[in-house]
Amino acid sequence: MELKNTKLFFPILIASGALLVFLMRAFMNDYILIIVNFVGINIILAVSLNLTNGFTGLFSLGHPGFMAVGGYVAAILIFPAARKEMLLPELPRWLAMQQWPLLPALILGGLCAALIALIIGFPVLRLKGHYLAVATLGFLIIVRVLITNMEKYTRGPLGLNGLPSLTNLWWVFLWVVITIYVSWKIKHASLGRSMLAIRENAMAAECLGIALAKTRITAFVIGAFFAGVAGGLWAHLVTAITPTSFSILMAFSLVVMVVIGGTGSITGAALAAILLTLVVEILRPLEEFLGAYGISEIIIAIGLLAILIFRPRGLFGSSEPSFLVKRKKTPQGSEAGI
């Protein structure tokens, strides 16, 4: 599989995306813009989760945990020093004085998430299949418990509110582009190939001499970095952050996106993120109108079950659409085939 005219294709895609962002900001109302922002953040989350889940078969439910880490770090760094004194009086002096702009705070938040991924990755990634899933779910719960109890830094269950509303569509767009670009490069570089090899058959890949642990950890850490960044963007979009924001339901929705998109497919994950966010946003007013809370989750859960039963390879399989890549004709079939 080789990229088709990537040199030209990506700039065109980015330019048209930027044009779209410009037009939307000019003509759309705030409500729709916020939804579009959510779409973008979910794309970052789904595509970065796909890096770990889809490419390597590592089934992590810990993504919202990394989001929480990135979100809180960014929020504490960005929060105006004057207001910090009121809201978080017990914060250590050196931290209370910080007042960072968005971009470096996002990056540092992402790095913190990545660092934690690195630390927990070494032991936890040795686990297989659903044991790993449960362990990462445990990680998510532990992160939440810690945040709830580190009141000095986080105000505990109250969370931090009144965060400056810094996230806008340009920032989200920038990070969507970076996430997709990095994932794309990884998927089509040798690292990506070895990741896919691990997904298909861990034992065989090991025999081929791929440093299994290293590849797994790399995928996990990169995925965590983007989740951390998305957490920061998210916090400064909704302008509040609480431990309960990063729920198991969120872990579930992210997994749904990857499954619907077809594990391993970047385009699929991105499209599924768009689709799912829009479905939720459309169902929400309906839910409120009917007073039937829970109905959107029910519909999504049933939809997911239907996909698992009737289209187990996801809506898009693990390949990318044919206009983006050209396939060498191989009799064994490429990753999409088997």
Partner: peptide, 16 residues
């Protein structure tokens, strides 16, 4: 993993 995800979906379904 498919079974695991399915069970998660059922869990969400029942809760909601």
């Amino acid at each position: 993993v498919t079974g695991f995800i399915a069970s998660l979906a059922i869990s969400i379904l029942l809760q909601n």
